[in-house]
Design a protein around this nucleic acid. Structure first.
Lengths: 188, 188
DNA sequence: GTATTTTGTCCACTATAAGAGACGTGATTG
DNA sequence: CAATCACGTCTCTTATAGTGGACAAAATAC
């Protein structure tokens, strides 16, 4: 009917094909294991039929996956593209600091965050904020002084810094223009 | 066919009925919202038909739930014991806010949720979120400012607040340590 | 109390999901 | 090259998912 429905049907279709091929199974083999006819599986994978709950249950059973997990994988595959308009944007009313979550919801453990820092603003973080993640900072525009414990790095546009051991940090914009930088972080 | 299939079909049936009734919707209302006919919904809830993926998608859409979540709830509904390792844990990558569903999926209308709120984080909720539930907040550790409409309650560890009429609310952690609290909610 | 509305189920009908087997294609084998 | 095999698609039939409307029972209104 509407686009979203086809999208999600397509996602299920793709997912089933992926799971089947990942196991090196032919349609016939999946048919044997699941009890669903070859023809039906073919139609489902080509999005020419919408499987019933019972058929989905049999297929996920053959894969050894709970149905909800199979569908969660399907849904995530859909969310691989994060449009700018959909990215959560947060602005601190006091400082004008803004923070945009660029990555799709499940970036596979990788999150990209774009930050803009007005001139003169300082943002301190406690060491605990970095306990469970590794991150890099890439300065896109403007100036950024990044204090990592006792050391201060003065970044220029294009510079990229990888953070070391967890320490209290301060992001500060010493310039006269807005600073824009990207934070890339992975969870441990 | 086999018992497992009936079981899971029954679980989906029950779950859809639970979600519908939790929102106080009649078959007609869910039908309007989802575009699935009253008759079909009735059959699904009574386990006389196995819904197709497209129909399941429309129903979960009407509930505002991803399909995988709807089915995850259905799958867990049979369990009365919820082990910590199995409890769905959700983390907001932006704020570090985490939310753990403690109760088994069919808590008999009672859901316990444990939340941790990093220092300085604010989580707003619209009034509509509270329309069909009653809830209490019990602060386990840290500090919590709970704004309920115009009134703000400053909670200290051990305090427990029962929510009144539905109003826009904000959870905020004004402290320097993580706040941990329990939300207990019953559906109306 | 009766009238009206609301709610869930039942019925007749249509659309389509699902199954059994044939078919075309491409790859392998002798 | 022909024969065989494995694979995915297509065709035809049957089972059932899905719809719209009628219905009885319960709740609500007056």
């Amino acid at each position: 009917m509407d686009r979203h429905e086809n999208q999600s049907a397509q996602a299920i279709a793709d997912r089933i094909k992926i799971e089947r091929e990942a196991r090196g199974w032919s349609l016939a083999e999946l048919s044997d294991r699941s009890g669903v006819s070859k023809a039906m599986i073919s139609k489902i994978e080509r999005c020419e039929a919408s499987p019933t709950a019972t058929v989905l249950g049999r297929l996920s059973g053959a894969f050894g996956l709970p149905l909800s997990v199979l569908l969660a994988l399907a849904e995530r595959a859909e969310e691989r593209l994060s449009r700018e308009a959909d990215q959560p944007l947060w602005t601190d009313p006091e400082t004008g600091y803004t923070r945009r979550a660029i990555s799709p919801a499940n970036g596979g453990g990788l999150d990209l965050i774009e930050v803009t820092l007005p001139p003169g603003v300082r943002i301190p973080y406690p060491a605990s904020a970095f306990a469970f993640q590794r991150q890099q900072i890439w300065l896109i525009a403007g100036r950024l002084d990044f204090a990592e414990g006792p050391v201060t790095h003065q970044l220029l546009p294009g510079d990229c810094l990888e953070l070391g051991a967890p320490q209290p940090c301060v992001f500060a914009n010493p310039g006269t223009d807005e600073a824009r930088y990207l934070i890339a972080l992975t969870r441990r």
